[in-house]
């Protein structure tokens, strides 16, 4: 072993430093030439790696977010003009607005229905297509296709299918006692549920892939032990699979909840630019778009609605995190 240094750092061989029980600053002779990767190991090297991402995050997320918060206390218009501070007026207007309250209700309802389905259905599908079996690859790819396709394209296809004179109604009126077309696109609730169904259908493939990755990490011996103990497929699912993928279920829940609160395209294409008859199916992003992003838009009010949506999302995430922690305890 090479010589030990006074600060208890041992040089195993040139270029390698091993800390002993008493860590201390590494001192190297300035005259000694640095070899191999050590030449690039400067204090600022990590900054080079994270710098671009941090800069992009600051420029495209943090600054616009701060700007939105600032604008939410003003009467800024989309095309400029004088900007005055209005204090909390925009927030008061939002809280008094039936339209905004309806949008919040729709967003929360959307989330409450879509999230459980998006947490459970992809898991069931993942369990079905997991492992090696004939055409397994085909089924995994087939379920994933909707995740690859554009939401807009899919929504247009659904819109054509669900029209009063579309194929779904043609089948329903032909093979069921239903006489008149079911108003999937013009009824307040049917439109919302159709949009949720679209979201869930599109999301199954994506979240299935996440679950497949999680399932691959569940110890096979647990299944074997459970089988030896007499557990059937259902018991194995509840007592081995579910605990094994629980962290992923939480991730899927969070991602799908954020997605549900941001939903826009599905409602826009199925329910038109007003968001259903008289805007009754509009979600919060829909409201933001209508009041803030039009050519005569009220940027201040739209920004306040954006902040409210942010608070709603973070509030939900904190609540679910708290519930998750309690369940673990």
């Amino acid at each position: 072993m090479p010589a030990s240094t006074a600060d208890s750092t041992v040089i195993e061989r040139p270029g390698q430093v091993v800390h002993t029980a008493q860590p201390a600053p590494v001192r190297r002779s300035k005259s000694r030439p640095q070899l191999g990767a050590e030449r690039f190991r400067k204090w600022w090297t990590p900054l080079l790696w994270v710098g671009p991402s941090v800069a992009a995050l600051i420029a495209f997320s943090i600054v616009p977010f701060a700007n939105t918060v600032g604008l939410s206390f003003t009467d800024a218009r989309a095309l400029g003009g004088p900007v005055r501070s209005v204090g909390l007026d925009n927030y008061r207007i939002l809280l008094e607005s039936n339209e905004f309250r309806n949008a919040v209700f729709n967003s929360i309802l959307y989330m409450l229905i879509a999230v459980p389905l998006l947490v459970m259905l992809p898991l069931l599908v993942a369990c079905l297509v997991n492992g090696t079996f004939r055409f397994g690859g085909f089924f995994r790819s087939a379920f994933y296709i909707p995740a690859v396709a554009s939401t807009v394209v899919i929504a247009i296809v659904w819109q054509m299918a669900l029209r009063d004179d579309g194929p779904v109604n043609a089948i329903l009126t032909a093979v069921t006692p239903i006489q008149e077309a079911v108003p999937f696109l013009s009824d307040r609730w049917l439109l919302l549920f159709s949009a949720i169904a679209l979201t869930v259908w599109k999301g199954i493939g994506f979240y299935m892939v996440l679950y497949l990755a999680a399932l691959a990490n569940v110890d096979e011996t647990l299944y074997e032990a459970a089988t030896i103990d007499g557990a059937g497929p259902v018991r194995r699912f509840f007592h081995v699979t579910l605990p094994g993928v629980r962290p992923m279920m939480y991730v899927v829940g969070v991602l799908s909840a954020i997605g549900s609160l941001r939903v826009f395209s599905e409602i826009y294409i199925l329910g038109g630019p007003t968001g259903g008859i008289g805007g009754q199916d509009a979600t919060v992003p829909f409201y933001i778009r209508n009041v803030g992003l039009a050519v005569d838009g009220k940027l201040g009010l739209g920004s306040a609605a954006s902040v409210m949506l942010f608070v709603l999302t973070v509030g939900f995430l904190l609540a679910s995190q708290r519930l998750g922690s309690k369940a673990e305890e």
Binding site: S61, P64, T68, I258, Y268, L299, T313
Partner: peptide, 26 residues
Amino acid sequence: VLALAGCGASGSDPGAGGGSASGNAS
């Protein structure tokens, strides 16, 4: 913050919220 403050209307997250108007009015 990333989900809501970003200005993009790309809607890249599949499933829920596949297409978003953006959570940021400005």
